[in-house]
Amino acid sequence: MELRHLSYFATAAELGSINRAAAALHMTQPSLSRQIKELERDVGHALFERTSTGVTPTAAGNGLLRHLQVVFAQLERMPEVLRLAEEAREPVRIGLPQGMPHDWFRGIIEALHASLPAASLSLHEATTEDQRPLLQNGLLDFGLLHFDAPELETVPLLDQRLGLAVPAGSPLSDRTSLELADFDGLTVMAHAFGEVNAEETRVRAAVAASGADTAWVFRRFGEHSELIAMTSEVDAVFMTEASAGRQLSDWVWIPVEALDTSGVPLVTRTWLAWTPPLRPFLQRVVDVVTDASRPA
């Protein structure tokens, strides 16, 4: 088995066609088919099902494809790994979800640079769900997750208050805090797919239990959150202050001072997560990050 055979297989799986893959690889179709058959013999499994429109991976093929995504990602990092080794630097790959306060994370970076000058930080923006397989497959050393993943080692780092962002002309815009009763009669936008779904579930349950009549609109948040909120004609957006500052900079963010139905404050928590065991240098990273996250 050679790496090129695995690359041929991955290309055919991605394009769903031996013919298209052969063209993309500048090969003839018979030659590519022969290479894939050799790979199937080597691994002892059929990797493709042939259909009238092309090919689709078998269960074994999908398993190999997932594994190759990790292998190819590691191969792409090889020049960086070699360069850092030559410079006596230690790579530290950290997953960073949306909604993190930049000033807080800058403090983490400064603490790492001060305490571990050999650390070479590499940040990768990804959602909590996207980070979990990256951590398990060794493509990230650490993740910042918005819930406590049971399959990983975790330590809580940061609690962020949740609140409502409202337009400057809103009747609520001069308030310094809100209660659950203030949700009554509002149309509120919340994440349809994102990073604080668990907290949103808690706040919706708490709002409903308070008797407030609230209409919820679910959308994906991002660069165009303000336009999405405007066209959805909502009164407020439920989010953290950090997200509001970046995505709704012209709106006013007001914290919600309330407890959920279990009596727990409505905050979103971030955990530092990793797959054990850690090599000693990375354990020192955990110590520095947790110390830097403690309130002064």
Rank of each mutant, 00 (worst) to 15 (best):
R4S: 13
R4H: 12
L6W: 12
A10E: 11
T11N: 07
A13T: 10
L15N: 04
G16C: 07
S17I: 04
R20E: 15
A21C: 10
L25S: 10
H26K: 15
S31T: 15
Q35N: 12
R41W: 09
V43H: 08
H45C: 13
L47D: 02
S52T: 10
T58L: 08
A59P: 06
A60G: 04
G61V: 03
G61N: 03
L64S: 07
H67C: 08
V70E: 08
F72W: 11
R77T: 09
P79A: 10
E80Y: 08
E87P: 01
A88P: 04
R89A: 14
V92Q: 05
R93T: 12
R93Y: 11
I94H: 01
I94V: 15
G95I: 03
M100I: 15
H102K: 09
E110N: 10
E110C: 04
L112D: 04
H113L: 12
S115N: 13
A118C: 07
A119L: 09
H124I: 14
E125K: 12
T127G: 15
D130C: 08
P133S: 06
P133M: 06
N137W: 09
G138V: 06
L140Q: 07
G143L: 01
P150Q: 13
P150L: 10
P150T: 12
E151P: 04
L152C: 10
E153N: 11
L157N: 00
Q160P: 03
R161S: 07
L162P: 00
A165I: 00
V166C: 03
S173Y: 10
T176W: 07
S177C: 10
E179Y: 03
L180Q: 00
F183Y: 14
E195R: 09
E195H: 11
A198E: 14
V203C: 02
V207S: 01
A208M: 13
A209G: 03
T214D: 05
R219S: 09
R219C: 05
R220E: 09
E223G: 08
E223R: 15
S225Y: 02
E226W: 05
A229F: 01
D235F: 02
M239Y: 02
T240R: 00
A242C: 11
Q247M: 14
E257C: 07
S262W: 09
S262T: 13
G263Y: 05
R269W: 03
L278S: 05
L278G: 03
L278P: 01
R279A: 14
Q283Y: 02
T290P: 03
T290M: 06
